[in-house]
């Protein structure tokens, strides 16, 4: 009974699928943008690979770029001032750094919204009070929070680095409908080709304390390295612990294999 019924059900599905095959066009809708989008360029960082470490000087430079450039529009909601001790700052430096920020608070006497000096336990304050304010100030485009950006985009750090360095004039053969409209900027690394963010970096925009030359490429690398850290502050520790675990498990696995061979030594199987 099962088999004849199954046969009929199977034929039903197969007929529906055969009709589907013959009614679905074999050609995709042409997507002109696709041929202009570029694959992100690879960015090599100290935190890459199986032997990662943090390049603290680079992370500090990157944080400077974030603070002086990106933070005008982008929040960094998941990072607290106390976290930047990981970047090689002392407790005192963190306190001073935090004090340089005004964080939202309330007036203790009136209860009105107010601001106060930042404490190490505070988080980087957002540039806009809410999404509506952020959109209103940015031509209806919402600048995303950057805390997780290198994990939240296809292509990760390579994408962020390529986007920051990828602003250029539209190619001559770019069709009219793909050309940037008002308030949009051409960037072949952006999936839509045109994004609301204007070219954020220009040579010499920040002055590095360590004397590194602040080229666009250098700043893009530094801020991307910093954003890799903000996305996963435990990355280096994770890989280091990983090696210890793998080492232990290798010995364990060899021992269990020997034990297995021993126990089975007198049994043919």
């Amino acid at each position: 009974m099962v088999r004849p019924l199954g046969f009929l059900v199977g034929l039903g599905f197969i007929t529906a699928l055969i009709f589907a095959i013959f009614t679905t066009p074999l050609k995709n809708e042409p997507n002109a943008a696709y041929s202009f989008v570029k694959h992100p360029r690879h960015l090599e960082l100290a935190s890459d690979g199986l032997m990662p470490h943090w390049d603290l000087a680079q992370l500090q430079r990157g944080m400077q770029v974030y603070k002086e450039v990106c933070s005008a529009c982008h929040s960094l909601n998941l990072v607290a001032f106390r976290n930047i001790q990981d970047l090689g700052y002392t407790e005192g430096q963190v306190k001073t750094f935090a004090k340089g920020f005004q964080v939202p608070s309330i007036n203790p006497d009136t209860g009105e919204p107010a601001t106060r000096d930042g404490l190490p336990s505070d988080y980087f304050p957002a540039p806009y009070a809410n999404d509506v304010a952020a959109r209103a100030a940015n031509n209806n485009a919402l600048p995303p929070d950057l805390s997780l950006i290198t994990k939240a985009r296809e292509g990760g750090k390579d994408y962020v680095y390529s986007l920051l360095t990828g602003y250029q004039n539209p190619p001559a053969n770019l069709p009219k409908e793909l050309r940037p409209g008002t308030g949009l900027h051409y960037n072949p690394y952006f999936p839509n080709l045109n994004l609301a963010m204007a070219k954020p970096l220009s040579d010499g925009q920040v002055t590095y304390a360590d004397g590194t030359k602040a080229t666009v490429d250098q700043m893009a690398k530094d801020v991307t390295a910093f954003l890799v850290w903000t996305a996963e502050p435990k990355l280096v520790k994770r890989v280091q612990v990983g090696w210890a675990v793998i080492g232990f498990l290798l010995i364990f696995t060899v021992l269990t294999y020997l034990s297995y061979r021993n126990i089975w030594a007198d049994k043919k199987h």
Partner: peptide, 20 residues
């Protein structure tokens, strides 16, 4: 004796791993 040693070693490693 040799067989016991390896089995004991494997089981102890499992114990250490569990604690870790």
């Amino acid at each position: 004796r040799r067989r016991d040693f390896i089995n004991i070693a494997a089981v102890s490693f499992a114990g250490v791993g569990a604690v870790a």
